[in-house]
Amino acid sequence: MHDSLFDRFREGESFLHRLAPTVKVVITVLFILSDALLPDGHWLGFGISWLTILLLNLAAQLGWSYTLKRSFIAFPFALAAITAIFALPGETLAVWDFGPWHLIATDAGLLRFLSIVVRSWLSVQVAILLVTTTQFPDLIHALEHLRLPRMLVTVIAFLYRYIFVLSDEVLRLLRARQARSAIPPHQRGGGSILWRARIAGNMVGQLFLRSYERSDRIYNAMLARGYQGHLRTLNRHGIHTRDWLLMTFAIFLLILLQLFAHLG
């Protein structure tokens, strides 16, 4: 199950795959920033951004709709933005009364809502593109290049390594729980909420202890290989001229888009 759930990387030989991870992270963040800076309702700007993402999808040999298909994760959150429709003054589109709320849908509100959803949808797609074309360990190296504290980077690296091991342990615990809780059909089983919560809590406690003991063994394995409290890493990802050029080009395009959106 990990392969589908935790691995987002797709093997490939495209120029996006070969681009230095650090540069990819920087461009991704700038792209999202550029999204945030596009005015509400600037559909042409949003459209150009999306077209770029489609082209990058193709360039990464993923097929044109790869990120599109995986971009719906943020949609449930759009619920939170629905109220934006009623939050702004403007031309009234409709009026509803819901209990204590007097809701006036305005054109400005609708525009804001749609823009928020589109922005988030574009940002999610470019983030998906990043993790699809970059191995996560390379992303961790990029964070190190970007001067994140060593301590935090190390914790993230361990987290990534042991997600797989610990989620397997969780699956085993969950299966064991399932195997022992036989529920006759058409009957509510499993005791009270408190009881169920205690079982879940015990599982969390057990997982904690196993993880704690595992960290002890890992510490021993680190000591055995010369760790003396100071971590060293060898980060072989160089940023070459090609990467610099591409980054400059991407930034140039983003600035062009902003100029066009704000002056044009």
Binding site: T154, L159, R161, Y162, S215, Y219
Partner: peptide, 9 residues
């Protein structure tokens, strides 16, 4: 260091 790492996982 390893403790925090495994605890994050």
């Amino acid at each position: 260091v390893p403790l925090m790492g495994v605890m994050a996982a």
